[in-house]
């Protein structure tokens, strides 16, 4: 049974089948954990974040967006040795923001997707660092150059990934 979400009237709302809804986030988490072993530079990417943004923008429903983000973030937290909730909170905010933006903007073209992904990557980093420093007292070094570079790389990969994932969209 497909999962459906409804939202605004002007923009089109998409749904995804259960295998895609479950499988794509799991695959993203798996690749995020596995690929850096062979290609260390891959850790600069955040595939679970890109998947969160994609689903949130496609469904255009803030509640489903934030819940998707929270779930993916919590699983991502569970794979680390840090406290559970750091990625959860950051991706909840991003999921909510992406679905809210998706409901107001036409995020189908590559340029808009690139900018949105870049913006949400920086938002994600800001929330993560704030919570990590403020609540867990982690010593994290923020580098603007590295952050922006990683944001650009994630945005570029995100645009390509979104076009692949667009094939799984189902019109409501």
């Amino acid at each position: 049974m497909p999962i459906t979400y409804t939202s605004g009237e002007q923009v089109e709302v998409y749904r995804f089948s259960v295998p895609v809804t479950v499988g794509v986030p799991l695959l993203a988490l798996f690749l995020q954990a596995f690929v850096p072993l062979r290609f260390p530079f891959f850790s600069i990417f955040d595939l679970p974040l890109l998947v969160t943004i994609f689903f949130a923008m496609a469904r255009r429903n803030p509640v489903s967006g934030l819940l998707t983000g929270a779930l993916i973030g919590l699983i991502q937290d569970a794979l680390t040795h840090r406290a559970i909730g750091l990625y959860g909170i950051a991706k909840t905010v991003v999921g909510f923001g992406a679905s809210s933006m998706g409901a107001k903007l036409d995020a189908e073209n590559a340029g808009a997707r690139f900018l949105l992904t870049l913006g949400f990557y920086l938002l994600h980093s800001a929330v993560y660092f704030t919570v990590a420093r403020g609540m867990v007292s982690l010593t994290l070094d923020w580098s603007w150059s590295r952050g922006v570079l990683a944001g650009l790389a994630n945005a570029a990969v995100g645009v390509a990934l979104y076009f692949v994932l667009d094939r799984f969209k189902q019109r409501t």
Partner: peptide, 22 residues
């Protein structure tokens, strides 16, 4: 404000969980 309330609720739960862990 349903969406915002749910957002705040979900965030609050996670922050609470984080505080317990810390």
């Amino acid at each position: 404000y349903r969406n915002l309330i749910i957002l705040v609720g979900v965030l609050f739960l996670q922050v609470l969980g984080l505080a317990v862990q810390v």
